[in-house]
Amino acid sequence: MSAERVLAISPRKSGTHLLQQLMVRLGYGIYGEPVPPEAGRAAFSLRERVELAERFAAPAEFADVDVRSDTDEFVRRTDRLLVQLGWVWQVRLAARNLSNLDLLMPDADFTMEMSPLAWTRPFNQTPPRLCWIFHSVDIWKMDQRFLHEWTVEGEPRIVLNIRDPRDALVSMVDFFAGEGGLKFRRFPESAVFGPILQSIPETADRITYALHDPAMPLLADYEAAISLLHHPEVCTVAFEDLVGPRGGGSRDAQVEATRRVVAHVDSGLDPEHLVDTLFDPGSFSFHKGRIGRWREVFTAEHEALFAQRFGHLLKVFGYER
């Protein structure tokens, strides 16, 4: 039987949609920072929802609703509870650049009183069949109960997705500039980087700006991932492998990368039957989806600046050559 819970770390613009699509094909719902496809929206039985309410909500929040006679209302409230449970685990996992849903969507009515135990219950009491995806976590601030659980029980299974940081930077610049992305409000991206890069008309000048702004999130995401890259219990896959022929890679590399993820989560599915649908131009933040695009837009000055600021990342993650 497949691992019930997976935690995936995928730095911004490293091809998160490819890993997300693979996890959906493996039968997982998606929670976290990317926008999941319809097939990846988690679905839970009434029994699972009852367990969630009992474990994580203050008793008063469900005292006036009966799961059988008021099923629609019960589902609505547990949907709210799931959103807030996600917020709790974003904090406990020390995910960076959290989005405050109450602030972004004040009319959505997410407010619900949580049980104090929500902050101490183990990760294995979160909903099953979920893959949680974050761009970056801080292992020094991560809940130590979670780290102990992962060490002792071996779950959740952790997957790290990486990409050539130069291509990630180009994709990030396009995203913040509104080309194939930034169609939603998220701070500080939509408040700071979006307006800045949208005010710069030329791609080359945008890249130059991004290479000079120390607040651009590329460095933080990748440096936070270095420890996971070297951890023997973390499965690392690369955009360049998962993207396959349609993005400039090879099918053999795509199948092999998929095979490693399948084995890591103990799935019995055949990688050969999974890979052909990973490349999805309809993904929310999809733009170009190609290997080596940085070569088309980097100038000699960009290469020198990147080597000065981020050259160590190329070496650590295997992209120096």
Rank of each mutant, 00 (worst) to 15 (best):
R129H: 13
W150E: 14
T151I: 12
M142G: 11
W140H: 15
T208G: 07
D167I: 03
L85R: 02
S69N: 13
V316N: 01
A43H: 11
P217I: 08
T203G: 03
R80E: 03
G86T: 07
I196C: 00
D205C: 00
S227I: 12
D174N: 15
Q20P: 07
H230W: 06
A225S: 14
A300M: 03
L219Q: 12
E113M: 04
H302L: 05
Q144R: 15
P106V: 01
R206V: 05
M1C: 12
Y209G: 00
L117G: 02
D241A: 14
F56K: 01
F62G: 07
P232G: 06
P232R: 08
G86C: 02
P127W: 06
F176C: 12
R251I: 11
G154D: 09
G292Y: 02
Q254T: 09
R246V: 10
L19M: 15
A210P: 00
V67H: 10
M172T: 10
E240G: 09
V83R: 06
D213H: 08
D79E: 14
A263R: 07
L7N: 12
V65I: 15
V152W: 12
R55N: 11
A58P: 00
F298L: 05
P156V: 11
I162A: 03
A224Y: 06
S190Q: 05
E256M: 13
R12G: 15
L98T: 10
I196K: 08
L19C: 11
E189L: 05
A95G: 14
Y28F: 09
F306L: 03
M23A: 11
S99T: 11
W119H: 14
A191P: 00
G318E: 00
D167V: 05
V262L: 07
P122K: 11
V159C: 13
L269A: 13
I133Y: 13
R5Q: 07
H273E: 15
L211R: 03
R295Q: 13
D280C: 12
F123W: 15
V50F: 04
A168Y: 07
T299W: 07
G318Q: 04
G86E: 10
E240Q: 04
V6E: 10
S190F: 05
L18N: 09
P36G: 07
E296V: 02
Y28G: 07
P59I: 00
G292P: 07
S250G: 10
E51M: 08
D221G: 09
L242K: 07
H212Q: 15
E179S: 10
L82T: 12
A42Y: 06
D79M: 02
A118Y: 02
A42K: 04
L7P: 00
D107V: 01
A307N: 12
P281F: 06
P11T: 00
F310I: 06
A257F: 08
D174Y: 12
R290E: 13
V275K: 04
F184A: 13
L169V: 01
A8V: 10
N124P: 01
L101P: 08
A43F: 05
W132D: 14
E38K: 13
T16S: 14
P37D: 11
D276I: 01
S250E: 10
S227P: 09
A191V: 03
K315M: 02
M112G: 01
